[in-house]
Amino acid sequence: MTPTPRPRRPVRGSTTGRPLMAALDLFGRRWILRIMWELHDGPLGFRPLQQRCDSMSSSVLHQRLTDLQETQLVERDAAGAYQLTELGQDAYGELRGLVRWSDRWAAELDHLPPHRSSPKT
């Protein structure tokens, strides 16, 4: 199992340990962004979170929640539900900019003619 990405430690694709590279490695892990997206409205228990994430396997959800807890982006509240920490909410806020950009990107691509491959000779 790959260790949880952390700043100042080598991560996939980078030996520098730059915080941005660690963040890209973490956010690039399958389901991480989806989990953060689902938690942005408030705390969720394990099963409701699993259902909102298209019923992903419990072992994968458990591992991703562990990753998010180790990086201090998610914590458990007094009732045992998972919620974004202040740092996690900050990350979510920054990701909203990416959502806005991706919407503009999709709109631009919708206005382009379909790509045609070169004719074979």
Rank of each mutant, 00 (worst) to 15 (best):
M1G: 15
T2I: 09
T2Q: 12
P3I: 01
R6F: 01
R6M: 12
R8V: 01
R8P: 00
R9D: 07
P10W: 04
P10Y: 03
V11S: 03
V11L: 03
G13D: 06
G13V: 07
G13N: 08
S14G: 03
T15Q: 12
T15P: 01
T16M: 05
T16C: 08
G17I: 05
G17N: 04
R18Q: 13
R18E: 12
R18M: 06
P19V: 04
L20Y: 03
M21V: 04
A23G: 05
L24A: 13
L24C: 11
L24Q: 13
D25V: 02
D25L: 02
F27P: 00
F27Q: 09
G28Y: 02
R29D: 05
R30S: 07
W31T: 08
W31H: 13
W31Q: 10
I32R: 08
L33A: 08
I35L: 13
I35Y: 01
I35T: 15
I35Q: 02
M36N: 03
W37M: 12
W37F: 11
L39V: 05
L39T: 03
L39I: 04
H40M: 09
D41Y: 00
D41W: 02
G42C: 08
L44D: 07
G45R: 10
G45F: 06
P48H: 04
L49S: 08
L49P: 09
L49G: 06
Q50H: 03
Q50F: 01
Q51W: 02
R52S: 11
R52W: 01
S55V: 05
S55G: 11
S57D: 14
S58K: 14
S59V: 15
S59R: 14
H62M: 09
H62Y: 04
Q63Y: 04
T66P: 00
D67N: 11
L68R: 04
L68K: 05
Q69R: 15
Q69M: 14
Q69G: 06
Q69V: 05
E70Q: 15
E70P: 02
E70S: 07
T71M: 08
T71D: 03
Q72M: 05
Q72K: 10
L73S: 03
L73C: 07
V74S: 06
E75N: 04
A78C: 01
A78W: 01
A78D: 14
A78L: 12
G80I: 10
G80F: 02
G80H: 07
A81C: 14
L84W: 02
G88R: 07
A91C: 10
Y92F: 10
G93T: 11
E94M: 12
E94A: 13
L95T: 11
R96P: 00
G97R: 13
G97D: 13
G97L: 13
L98H: 08
W101D: 12
W101V: 11
S102D: 11
R104A: 10
A106K: 12
A106C: 06
A107S: 13
A107R: 14
E108I: 04
L109E: 12
L109Y: 04
D110C: 03
D110S: 14
H111N: 14
L112S: 08
L112R: 15
L112M: 15
P113V: 09
H115T: 15
R116Q: 15
R116D: 06
S117V: 13
S117Y: 05
S118L: 11
S118V: 10
S118F: 00
